[in-house]
């Protein structure tokens, strides 16, 4: 990536994402319970936990796909949910990779990638297409620029989705279970791309159960259960020496298979 992280304003503040006592309810269900968490620039944080623990909701709040109801959430120095914050503008700084890819089925791989740069960033089309082809090559799909999503495998679609985010040159990338909808043999091709992105210094929050990925690139693992952060620490520490009963039980389940 051509981006130089030393130019980022967030570099001066050493925190890009900050949750302060964040709460959220779906009806009577308390999905986020008093979350306090901060993420530094260039940090890779893996969020794991049983299903329904609120981990997806947590990262969906960061770009405002879900609204928080109590507490403070500051992303890139802007308060999320504050009427003074231009969420559309903030979202251009945050890439989001979905579990189900959500590629636009009526557009080719290249068009998927260039759509936002052309219409949001106002990049000239020729430039956007040149960048788009480079990004496709980078995720190993240099020859697929003309393919429609329906002609690509799940792993290829997810790699296009990652390229689509990178095209906006975001400061932060969020991944919501990026490999759980994939057949096992396609998981590694997506993880490899994610590792490459992490190694370039991207600030990332990744909801995943891929512990191998966490060991390779994460600085921190956050374990959530029933809407709360139960435990958080360095991957090695967390995997070899979980401190709570709940995290032990969880690790026992996912490591067994």
């Amino acid at each position: 990536m051509a981006r130089c992280s030393c130019e980022l304003p967030s570099g001066r503040f050493s925190v890009v994402i900050e949750f302060q006592g964040v709460n959220k309810w779906f009806g009577s269900l308390h999905v986020l319970n008093d979350i306090t968490l901060s993420v530094q620039p260039r940090e890779v944080v893996v969020v794991c936990g049983p299903s329904g623990s609120g981990k997806s909701t947590l990262i969906r709040c960061i770009n405002g796909l879900e609204q928080i109801q109590k507490g403070d959430l500051v992303v890139d120095e802007k308060r999320v949910g504050d009427p003074a914050t231009n969420m559309t503008l903030l979202r251009t700084e945050i890439g989001f990779v979905f579990q189900s890819f959500n590629l636009y089925p009526h557009k080719t791989a290249l068009e998927n990638i260039t759509l936002a740069p052309i219409h949001v960033r106002k990049t000239p089309r020729a430039q956007a297409e040149k960048d788009g082809r480079e990004l496709l090559a980078k995720v190993g799909l240099g020859d697929k620029f003309n393919a429609y999503p329906s002609q690509l495998s799940g792993g290829q679609q997810q790699r296009v989705a990652i390229a689509r985010c990178l095209a906006m040159r975001p400061k932060i990338m969020l991944f919501d279970e990026p490999t759980s909808a994939l057949d096992p043999e396609m998981i590694s091709e997506v993880l490899d791309v994610m590792v490459a992105v992490a190694e370039e210094g991207m600030t990332m929050m990744v909801v995943t159960h891929e512990m191998g990925f966490a060991r390779r690139v994460a600085q921190r693992v956050v374990f959530m259960d029933q809407g709360s952060i139960v435990e958080s620490g360095a991957p090695e520490e967390f995997f070899s020496n979980p401190k709570t009963e709940r995290s032990k039980a969880f690790l026992g389940k996912i490591l067994r298979h």
């Binding site: 770009n63 405002g64 796909l65 559309t88 503008l89 979202r91 251009t92 945050i94 890439g95 989001f96 979905f98 189900s100 959500n102 590629l103 636009y104 759509l115 936002a116 219409h119 949001v120 989705a161 689509r164 985010c165 906006m168």
Partner: peptide
């Protein structure tokens, strides 16, 4: 998900 993807890329 289509709307969310478009939302997330700042359209």
């Amino acid at each position: 998900g289509q709307v969310e993807a478009a939302l997330a890329s700042g359209l």
